[in-house]
Every structure is written in C-alpha cells, then in structure tokens.
Amino acid sequence: MTKVLLIDDDVDLTTLLQEYLAEEGFEVTATSDGRAAIAQAAANSIDIIVLDIMMPDMNGIDVLQRIRRLSQVPVLMLTAKGDDVDRIAGLNLGADDYVSKPCSPGELVARLKAILRRSGSASAATPQDSLRAGELIMHPGTRTADWRGRPLELTGTEFSLLEVLARHAGQLVSKQDISKHALGRPLTPFDRRIDVHLSSIRQKLGMREDGQSWIQSVRGHGYQLLQDR
C-alpha cells in the first residue's frame, strides 16, 4: 500500500481525508507535529506527504525546507485559497504540487495519484530506455538523471518537466503542451507552477559558457532546452 503522511492540525479535515484515502487504498499516518514529520521523511518510511502550510509551532514552509534537505519524497501542499506567496515559496522549495483549501477529497486523491505516477519508478528499465540531450542523460525507467557526468537531483515533477523539454531539445515547446505531457492536465489561466519548477531546474543546471540559461523562455509561447554548441 502507498504510505501517505498527512501533516495538518485541522482535526475534522484530517479525519475526513484519512477515511477517504483509506477507502482509496492508501495507508495514512496523520500528525500535526512538523518535527515528527521531518523525522519520518528522513527515515524514508513514507511514499508521499500532504503538508498544510498553516500550522502552529513550525509552519509548513519551514517543514518543507527541512524535509528537502533530507529527502526527495513527493510533497503536495495544502494552501489557503488565493495565497500565491505561500504557493510559490513552496514550489521553489521543491513541493511537487498544491491544492487550495477547502478542497474535495476526490481532488486531493487525483492529485496524489498524478504525483505518484510522475515520481514513481516504471517497471523495467534498460540502457535503451535512456534519453540523451547533449550532456543531459535521463533514465525514465528509474526516474533518475545525470548532468555533465554527475547525478542531477530532481523532484518527480521537475523530472517530468525536464523530460518533455529533453525529448524536444532545441525546439520550442508550448506551456500548454508541457502541462499536458508532464503534469497530465491542461494549463489553467494564471497558473505559474511550470514557471516556478523550471526556474528551479535552471538553477540546478547552471549557466552555459555564453552566459545563457540552458532553458530559454519565449514570453507567451513556451520553453526550449538549448542544445550544445
């Protein structure tokens, strides 16, 4: 069973989500203690985390920051409706996605399953499964990547986004196509998830010798992974 760690101090919501997730086949552990959640993430005892931003003692942003120092476990944030600052901060720190509260249990489960599909290992990987774009080598079967001969640490969502660009290296890919192929859903107006995740990937790739970013954006059109010169 997929193990979910639910971090939220809202007792009523937590009880509702625990029951719904259990019916969907998830094994759920709930806590309102951010430090306990960090310890569980470090122990690699869970498959995915649902993390509320607004919590007492240690807020969700601080918890996420600590978790990302220790683990790349997928994280879905629960945020207040319209709170773009927390959403962007969370995505910048490596959260995979977010859902606005109040949310329906069905939407939450759908998002969890989508994240797990993106971050989970595929069945059997062989050397032929590797995808190469210049000095970038991606292994979709194991969801791992190498950049310039060294492992490239990516969250599940970051891997999916970069894979789409790598399959079309040197070509402009629209944000709508990136969203459909990497995230499995159409892009909605004012949704900045892709921009924030790709900004994180840019930082991890570093700069080219000519001073340009490896991932170029064309305002209003999309993104392009540059090829080696």
Rank of each mutant, 00 (worst) to 15 (best):
D86H: 15
R111C: 10
I61A: 02
V75H: 01
L64E: 03
D83M: 10
L136E: 04
R68D: 03
N92I: 00
S104I: 00
A95K: 06
L76S: 00
K101P: 11
G134F: 05
L116G: 07
P56H: 05
L78C: 06
R118W: 01
V109D: 06
A95I: 10
R68Q: 09
D62R: 14
Q128S: 15
L78M: 14
G60M: 09
P127K: 07
S100T: 15
L136R: 07
L91E: 02
E107N: 10
R143M: 06
D96L: 09
S130W: 01
G149I: 10
C103D: 00
G60D: 03
I137Q: 14
Q65N: 14
A80I: 06
H139R: 14
K113E: 13
V109E: 09
V73A: 04
L91A: 10
A124Q: 09
E158Y: 03
T155H: 02
G120M: 08
S100L: 02
R69H: 13
P151W: 05
W147I: 07
T155I: 05
D146P: 00
D146M: 13
I115M: 13
T126S: 15
L116V: 03
V63A: 05
L131K: 11
L70I: 02
A145H: 08
M77E: 02
T157S: 15
D57E: 15
G156A: 10
D96S: 14
L93E: 11
V109I: 05
D146K: 03
A114K: 10
I61Y: 03
V99Q: 06
P102T: 04
C103R: 00
V73F: 02
V75N: 02
L64N: 03
P151H: 11
P102N: 06
T79C: 14
G94I: 07
A110N: 13
P102Y: 00
S121V: 14
E153L: 12
L154K: 09
R150Q: 15
P74L: 05
A114C: 09
T157W: 01
A145V: 00
W147V: 09
D83S: 11
P105H: 08
P74F: 05
L112E: 01
R143N: 07
K81N: 03
I61N: 04
